[in-house]
Design a protein around this nucleic acid. Structure first.
Lengths: 278, 278
DNA sequence: CTATTATTGTCACAAAATGAGACAATAATA
DNA sequence: TATTATTGTCTCATTTTGTGACAATAATAG
């Protein structure tokens, strides 16, 4: 029901302001998409109304599969341009909540490990032409002075996610959202490549002190899985026995049953992260 | 000369817009203050023109003296309200440059260790009443919808400074800028106390990994000075011999002549930080 | 059923880092 | 010259980490 109430409210507004016709169209399409997918989406209106001006959020969302770090990228429709998933902050919304909302929109997940890592605020990151291409790709011809073409300061967040649980959510304007190998990323718009690099740097620096690696693994995992994850993030080989001894000495893992893989060797124990111990 | 050019430009603008009379007065007063103190100051005009909207910078500026950490606080005139020194970002200015500018305005120093530590973006930090008091204290009666009374997201920076070199700069509206013991801070406005706590937490976490402590000491210092600094920041006693061995093994200090204090004991060596080694 | 293969859990010892104290070497003062 | 406080360095014990060895599997091949 609430969908229709919003639409009717919007309709009343539009009768007073013909410039918002295209917004209305987007709104209808978006609501239909929501109803079909039971997934809230965000419609960006032509004037940025209801959002904090000049401030954005970009998220580096890490996943781990087959000994490779991956991140979620958005391919903007009809442009071939790749970008980090991002969004804007609502007038009455906490900054960190906005980041969680963006994350939930793309991954469908909540209660995810998410942290600020840097604010990107150089003038040089401003590039109206790129934004114009993206908007045109979605069927909008932006006005000369459109709010999306102006300078933005962007707060960078990184998230750590269990790859298995995520089905990347593409949105109703047919932007594609998918995993890409960190080692083999396409060119990214603006300064998004710097964002990825800085996020990885922060992840590395925090890996030991904050014990956050577990967020990238499934509920249960073997010691070899965990070591492989650490090696991939840190970019160096670790010694098996030292690693095992160090991790176990932290007393943050609960040992479960053995894992029977069917392979021709001793079966490893499965472990589970004990959150209470933090 | 350029002062007068700016004033004349301003005068021309004002003839078209009487609402800016008070700005003009501020501008004149500010320019006179600048000429007297040879210190650039920032005049905040009534409409926030030329600044990024909704975004601010706040700086936790650390100093160290007599085995105490101190920070610079601003006492807003005629209010008794204490706040972190802060400022806004100009339309054509990099975020980090704006932070350096704020720092230079308060300390007169450049090339200072300065780093982002967190973005404060909760709605709850918005408190129009506090800002109104501050503005009234400066002789401005803000309009209901004044830009300074709206919600701000603030980027927190912390700076490490050689206490000896700083003469805090109070500004021409008679805000007082002074050092305060971290252990004995007055109540701060908004969420500025959270900012201080988070800055200290970040400083502690980065102390060993980034070797930044030296920025709080004079050019030359004894090993006891350095140990005392570390103990104060970390809030715990360290062992003299272990500390000395650890620091020297980093090979980032150059040993100079001894320091003759006139006290009745062996004179300690002076050391100097070798920046190249980083 | 036994030998083989790959991997795991654990132990043992070496090497390095750190904790803790001892002690001689000052630089003033009494 | 003896005394006092502090410093630079050394030694030894303790803890942590590096390194390899080895028995214990869990399949597979014969």
């Amino acid at each position: 029901m609430s969908h229709f109430v919003t639409i009717i409210e919007e309709l009343l507004l539009i009768t007073k302001n013909p410039a918002r016709y295209s917004d209305f169209f987007l709104l209808i399409a978006g609501k239909l998409f929501e109803m079909k997918n039971q997934q809230p989406i965000e419609v960006i209106t032509h004037d940025g109304e209801g959002l904090l001006p000049g401030l954005a959020i970009d998220a580096v969302i890490f996943g781990f599969q087959q000994n490779q770090l991956k991140i979620l990228l958005l391919e903007h429709s009809n442009t071939g341009l790749f970008a980090l998933p991002g969004g804007f902050i609502r007038n009455q919304e906490n900054l960190n909540d906005a980041a969680r909302r963006v994350l939930a929109q793309r991954t469908g997940l909540q209660n995810i490990y998410l942290e600020q890592f840097y604010v990107f605020g150089d003038c040089s990151r401003h590039n109206a032409e790129t934004l114009r291409k993206i908007m045109i790709g979605k069927g909008n011809i932006p006005t000369e002075n459109h709010w999306l073409l102006r300078r933005f300061v962007s707060v960078g967040y990184y998230a750590l996610i269990d790859f298995e649980k995520v089905v990347p959510v593409s949105d109703f304007l047919f932007d594609n959202c998918n995993w890409y190998d960190l080692e083999n990323l396409p060119d990214l718009i603006l300064d998004h490549r710097d964002m990825v690099d800085k996020a990885l740097e922060t992840l590395r620096a925090n890996l030991d002190s904050k014990l956050i690696g577990f967020n990238l693994l499934p509920e249960t995992f073997t010691m070899a899985d965990l070591q492989s994850l650490y090696e991939t993030i840190l970019g160096e080989k670790l010694r098996r026995t030292s690693f095992q001894r160090k991790i176990l000495s932290l007393e943050i893992l609960e040992r479960l049953d053995k894992k029977w893989t069917g392979e021709a060797h001793k079966a490893p124990y499965l472990y589970k992260f004990i959150k209470d111990q933090l």
